[in-house]
Design a protein around this nucleic acid. Structure first.
Length: 493
RNA sequence: GGUUUCGUGGCCGAGUGGCUAGGCAGCGGUCUGCAAAACCGUCCACAGCGGUUCGACUCCGCUCGAAACCUCCA
């Protein structure tokens, strides 16, 4: 672990040296999806961001336990269906069991994340499976005196908490402002203070998802599951807690308060937040109804999409922006990502075919490739700057293509170094992969070699008619023939 | 209104007090039977106005504009 990894801690708003609490182990908790809808591009961002963190920490030699929750108990809604559970609403519409809905969308989530080559976390706990832990935590907070019960519901006493601790330290909020600015929502009359939040909510009669508790039959407040499950699996003090920036307040702010109240100290060392995906400058989100699902991206079936985009194109697109910047969706941007990725992967293939052009050691060339590798590490160590890393890899692409063009002469050591760089950074850490079908690839490649050799013969006899017919027909099958000095190669779109 | 943040070239997107980001697109070459690919070269920036500084796109202030959060959301 000689690499010094710096990550941006939202708590200090600075880049801090990552020092594991208990090396070589590292614990990371990330807020996962609420499973009542198909995953969209916005879900892909944190999944890929923290997949990058997961992969890089592992690369650095950490033994990482990565926990990402599945929220399947639904949250309170604040509209006319006050107090009702989101999953329950959907379930009634579709005449299904709420847990059936949750299961369905959780499965969908897993499938789409797999296709994006997002590694599965070590543990994916469900809120519904941790009622006991959540109820216990409510009790701990009550015992500590930072919560009160009203009519079977339990609320966190933010006002009392803020006398000793700083509620708002993560998001930079001031309690007085919250007091004056929090809207008076219906059914909030039970709260002593508008900024108080529910730890346990008594279920209304129409509520389908409910669990018994010492206070009422009801359901947990929506900040509680993360506090309960993160500390259960990672301990009372763990390294990284991640999530989208939109969760900063009140979700993560309240998590800090809950842990402080229940455990007696904070539970998280580094808070990391990814920024939003925007569409026409606006956040892509469920509430705005401007989201495009991953399924729609992969099939191209959405009115805003000019074409289908492959999972790796989406992944590359996301990694081309730094995780703390907003990322604006557009067809033009995705098409640029698609072409850039193709260029990158083609160069990797080329690299595999390159043979040493010289056996003389070249200190200058070797030094340059070494510098490339150093640049890659520096990019990752600087708060996981994947766009810089990708820029470094494109420098490698240039070297590879120059070598293939005969303009550079690489020796065996240099080729090996390049291969190592691409294997490590492009495939292992960025998690990109070649999407060409692997099963029949060998067969097709054999067929293609045959066709290309026939075409080569026709070219040698200047039978351009046959030569072009082969090329044009293949093109119609989305296979591009590329003639080079060393013969022809082919590429399937 | 409050909190947090942002405004970079045709598009996407990094970064730094003085030195080329990168990708896509464009333009000009090389290569090629033609094409594609590739290679070389090249054009187009740092919202506006002040201030600090030998020097600012980078620091400070103001103006304009945008976003996220304050209410379910990744």
């Amino acid at each position: 672990m000689e690499n010094q990894l710096y990550i941006h801690n939202t708590l200090s708003r600075k880049k801090e040296l990552f020092e594991a609490i208990n090396p070589p182990f590292a614990g990371m908790y990330v807020c996962g999806p609420t499973v009542y809808g198909d995953p969209h591009l916005g879900h892909a961002r944190p999944a890929i961001t923290f997949d990058l963190v997961f992969r890089y920490l592992q690369h650095l030699g950490y033994r990482v336990r990565y926990v990402r929750n599945i929220t399947d108990v639904g949250h309170l809604v604040a509209d006319l269906d006050e107090g009702e559970d989101k999953i329950a609403v959907k379930a009634r519409l579709e005449q299904l069991e709420p847990m059936e809905i949750a299961q369905y969308y959780a499965d969908r989530y897993f499938i789409f994340m797999d296709s994006l080559n997002v590694k599965r976390p070590s543990i994916e706990p469900r809120a519904s499976g941790h009622m006991i832990e959540q109820i216990r935590m409510v009790q701990q907070i009550l015992d500590a005196g930072y919560a009160y019960e009203v009519n079977g519901s339990v609320y966190f006493d933010v006002e009392k908490y803020s006398k000793t601790f700083e509620y708002g330290k993560l998001s930079g909020r001031v309690l007085d402002d919250l007091m004056t600015n929090t809207r008076a929502l219906e059914g909030q009359d039970e709260k002593q203070h508008p900024a108080d939040f529910a730890l346990w909510k008594k279920a209304q009669p129409e509520h389908i998802m409910r669990w018994p508790s010492p206070w009422s039959e009801g359901f947990p407040g929506w900040h509680l599951e993360c506090s309960a499950m993160s500390t259960k699996y990672l301990g009372n003090y763990f390294d990284i807690h991640g999530g989208g920036m939109d969760l900063l307040f009140p979700h993560h702010e309240s998590e800090i308060a809950q842990c402080q109240a229940a455990i007696g100290h904070e539970s998280v060392k580094y808070w990391m937040h990814n920024n939003m995906v925007t569409i026409q400058g606006q956040k892509m989100g469920k509430s705005l109804g401007n989201f495009i699902t991953l399924d729609e991206f992969f099939t191209g079936k959405h009115r805003l999409l000019e074409q289908a985009y492959s999972p790796m194109t989406i992944r590359f697109f996301i990694l081309q922006a730094h995780y703390r910047s907003t990322l604006d969706f557009s067809n033009e941007a995705l098409q640029a990502a698609e072409r850039g990725l193709k260029k990158m992967l083609t160069a990797c293939e080329t690299l595999g075919r390159l043979v040493p052009a010289t056996d003389t050691p070249n200190t200058e060339g070797t030094g340059r490739i070494n510098a490339l590798k150093t640049g890659c590490y520096e990019a990752m160590n600087d708060d996981l700057n994947s766009p810089i890393l990708i820029a470094c890899l494109f420098e490698g692409v240039r070297i590879i293509n120059s070598a293939a063009d005969g303009k550079e002469r690489l020796n065996e050591a240099e080729l090996a170094m390049l291969k190592e760089i691409f294997n490590t950074f492009l495939f292992e850490i960025l998690g990109l992969k070649d999407e060409k079908g692997s099963d029949q690839h060998e067969t097709i490649d054999g067929l293609m070699q045959l066709i290309l050799s026939i075409r080569q013969k026709s070219r040698e006899t200047k039978d351009w008619g046959t030569s072009d017919q082969i090329r044009d027909t293949l093109q119609k099958l989305n296979i591009t023939v590329k003639d080079g000095k060393e013969g022809s190669t082919w590429e399937n779109l």
